[in-house]
Simulated scan of single mutants.
Amino acid sequence: MSRITCWLKSLALVALILMAIGVHVTRKHLRKLPDTMAKIPSKRYSVPVTENLTPAEPSTNRLEASLDSDLAALIEAGNALPNFFLKRRGQDKAAYRNISISFVHYPKSGGTTIKDCLIKMASKAGKPDPVLVFAKNVANTKEQMLNGELEKAKIFMGTNGFTLCEYLHPKRCAYFTMLRDPYDRMVSHYYFCKDGGQSNAPCQQSIEKFALLVRSIFLHQMASGVNKCEQDSRLKWSCASKRRSLDKIVNYNSTKEEMVLNYLERKLVDTFAVVGLLEEYETSLALLQEALGLPFYDECITEFSNSKINNTDQRALERIASKKKLLENEDVRKALDADIRLYRKAKELFEKQKERSRRYWKN
């Protein structure tokens, strides 16, 4: 019996020893396990983690990578002076005096009055007449600028006034504009056309269909200014008259168009020396006069040009009803979304400009 007992005890001891060795080996293997797993390719985890991250904010580099490089450079507006009230920083006020200026005319937003005012100011100051820039002559204007034929010109204005500052490099230049609620602007545009005013879109149709043809004008004014310009063997510049629309530049890709819009929203403060609003016309003139040192308020306050509006009570009621139709139409809202967003941003900038303006608080 004693031999059997001793034998059983020996077996138990051996078992305990083997168990101890097994635990040690297992622990040692577990410590190495992560390194081993790291070397094993797994289809489940092969998707890069970055695909789940929120996309970075658009930048010039992103624009250049995703869009036409010429468009990216132009909407960067690197030669334009930033907002006088909000981004001037260490620059002296003198940097905004006696420089070239370009008025970006957003139609039916008080722009004709501003253009008439600019002509009057230039005449009184003995300066060359302002250069009117529109779709049919913008390529020729850029050729003249590049070839040094407009050296004396100081004032540019028109619906195609944006991007011109880039053709004046290295001379600095300032953009300014007057904006308006896009729905009100569309109603004004529609009835201006019906009263015989010029319009690219036909107005012998409902205002909703008219709005769907016109769409967001300001977005396309800022992002469709690419005219291909090249030098010939004599170093003379020539610019192609045909420009590509934003739709074609982004190849009808809504994601890329959204990228451009987001970028332009942020760039308004860097691109425009002053942003005015028709709804606060007098204050806008005062801000322009303070920033650019030209008598906008003194010369323009008593004028209001291009008033072909039939201001009868019946027409006023028609306008109210027309705006209501636009506001209730989801397709129209989408068509005007870009200008609505840019206008909302412009209103924020306008309030900040007023806060910084000395003239505004004095009055």
Rank of each mutant, 00 (worst) to 15 (best):
P202I: 01
S284V: 02
V250R: 11
G148D: 04
C229L: 05
F210Y: 15
P128V: 02
I40P: 05
N227H: 15
A291H: 03
N227Q: 05
K32Q: 12
F192C: 10
K9F: 04
F304N: 15
S102G: 15
F192T: 04
V269Q: 06
T50Q: 14
E280F: 09
Y343N: 09
A56L: 13
E151C: 05
T26L: 15
N79C: 08
R344D: 14
L235K: 15
E290C: 11
R172T: 11
A122H: 09
S216Q: 03
C173V: 08
A15H: 11
Q221S: 12
Y167G: 07
I340F: 09
P82N: 02
K28N: 11
L285Q: 06
K228S: 03
L235H: 15
K142F: 02
V23S: 13
N83V: 01
Y297F: 14
S109Q: 01
Q231G: 00
S305V: 02
R341G: 01
L11Y: 06
I155Q: 08
N137R: 11
I114L: 13
R359I: 13
L179D: 01
H169D: 00
T163R: 08
I155E: 04
Y183L: 09
Q314L: 13
I119N: 12
P58L: 05
A56E: 04
I340G: 01
L164A: 04
A153Q: 13
L264M: 11
K108S: 01
L268N: 04
L16A: 14
A95V: 13
L71N: 06
M1C: 03
I320V: 15
G90F: 02
N253C: 10
A65S: 14
A15M: 10
S188E: 03
M186C: 09
A174R: 08
E230A: 09
L86S: 00
V104G: 06
F84S: 02
T5W: 09
V250K: 11
A211L: 00
R356L: 04
N253L: 10
L179M: 15
S357R: 07
S199I: 05
L219E: 11
S59N: 07
F350D: 00
T163V: 13
T50G: 12
N140R: 15
R356W: 01
I101Q: 05
V14Q: 13
